[in-house]
Amino acid sequence: MRLPAELLAFSKVKKGDVVVDIWPGGGYWSRLFSTLVGPSGKVYAYVPAEITGFKSDPLALAKAIASEPGHGNVEATSYPAAEQPQADLYNQVDVAWTFENYHDLHDSFMKGADVNAFNQAVFKRLKPGGYYIVADHAAVAGSGLKNTEDLHRIDLATVRAEVEKAGFVFDGETSVLAVAADDHQLKIFDPAIRGKTDRFVLRFKKPSH
Score class of each variant (00 low, 15 high):
79 Y>D: 13
105 L>H: 14
113 A>W: 02
171 D>Q: 07
76 A>Q: 00
208 S>F: 03
76 A>T: 00
91 N>W: 05
57 D>S: 10
142 G>C: 04
86 Q>A: 15
42 K>A: 09
173 E>D: 04
35 T>H: 12
48 P>H: 06
34 S>T: 00
106 H>C: 02
196 K>T: 07
95 V>M: 02
25 G>N: 07
181 A>D: 15
36 L>N: 07
190 D>K: 11
154 I>D: 03
123 F>D: 13
194 R>C: 04
179 V>D: 15
160 R>T: 11
153 R>I: 06
56 S>H: 05
23 W>A: 09
88 D>S: 11
161 A>L: 06
159 V>K: 02
103 H>V: 01
52 T>D: 11
195 G>R: 08
189 F>G: 05
36 L>W: 03
104 D>M: 06
134 V>F: 04
23 W>F: 08
172 G>I: 12
18 V>T: 15
179 V>K: 15
172 G>Q: 07
43 V>A: 02
198 D>W: 11
26 G>Q: 09
119 N>P: 14
33 F>K: 00
32 L>F: 01
11 S>H: 01
64 A>C: 11
95 V>S: 01
131 Y>R: 05
116 N>T: 14
155 D>G: 00
5 A>T: 11
203 R>P: 00
169 V>G: 03
79 Y>S: 09
71 H>T: 10
136 D>L: 12
67 S>A: 14
165 K>E: 11
83 E>M: 13
107 D>R: 15
24 P>T: 02
32 L>N: 05
202 L>I: 12
67 S>F: 11
200 F>Y: 14
115 V>R: 08
139 A>R: 10
53 G>H: 10
63 K>D: 10
66 A>L: 07
141 A>R: 15
37 V>I: 05
195 G>P: 13
75 E>R: 06
51 I>A: 06
156 L>M: 07
203 R>E: 01
97 W>M: 01
64 A>W: 07
81 A>I: 04
97 W>L: 00
3 L>D: 13
178 A>E: 15
207 P>C: 00
63 K>Q: 15
176 V>A: 03
62 A>F: 03
182 D>T: 09
86 Q>N: 12
134 V>G: 01
202 L>R: 02
69 P>W: 10
146 K>G: 02
53 G>K: 13
37 V>G: 03
162 E>N: 06
123 F>V: 10
